[in-house]
Design a protein around this nucleic acid. Structure first.
Lengths: 112, 112
DNA sequence: TGACATACATAGTAATTCTATGTATAATAA
DNA sequence: TTATTATACATAGAATTACTATGTATGTCA
């Protein structure tokens, strides 16, 4: 296809970070919760994506100590990342709309 | 993720064939038309997928001569393929619903 | 007759996500 | 007190999916 599939992980991560700064493990838990268990992202998927987003300037990382005493690595959405999110959201709307259009058009033939 | 992404091509092809028997080239053209140019599937993507669907018994192929004199290879959706389509459609609904849920939940935080 | 659309096909490459594994700390249960 | 589980980050390697590039061949139209 034209758009290298969906780049699914990038859209979801950027969207999560548009609400609040989060650390990696938290994103995995939140994604499971908000998607009602549909998404169970693996560390092996998320961390490389986060590093890529940071390298590209979409997110910025900073360390912060948790109440537990552990140091977590939080990610913050940059202005550039916010723009990328809008682009990805539009791409998702176009993509999902197109899939639905194809599904409907085929179903329609059965009824015609 | 759990579900190996979406298997996008399989869903679209099965859906196309649920309306009528089609040959490969026709599927590419129809997909472009029905998706309003969003999908521009390549031969290199489609033909291996069709061969896989045939091997798995989801579609059956037969030769038929076109009015032009050329022989085309038509694909017909089998009962097994119809069942697979239903499964894929449900998977798509779950997936797209989950993406939208995550997008909405993040956007909601900005307004809260 | 040369260019273009039609029609099918495969090899090799690129992108994405997974599995598996490793390290380390905090909390909780036995 | 010690073993297990949850938290937290990370990377290497494999699998999957789709793409690019290429090849073959026929019909149509300028």
């Amino acid at each position: 296809m034209k758009k290298k599939s969906i780049d699914h992980t990038k859209l979801l991560v950027l969207s999560l970070l548009s609400g609040e700064d989060m650390y990696g493990y938290q994103m995995i838990v939140e994604l499971g919760r908000r998607s009602n268990r549909t998404f169970e992202m693996k560390e092996g998927t998320l961390y490389p994506v986060l590093h890529g987003l940071e390298k590209d300037g979409y997110v910025e990382a900073y360390q912060q100590e948790a109440p537990t005493g552990r140091v977590r690595k939080y990610y913050h959405l940059t202005r550039k990342g916010g723009a990328a999110l809008k682009t990805e959201e539009k791409a998702w709307e176009a993509y999902s709309g197109a899939v639905n259009a194809v599904l409907r058009s085929s179903a329609g033939l059965n009824l015609a």
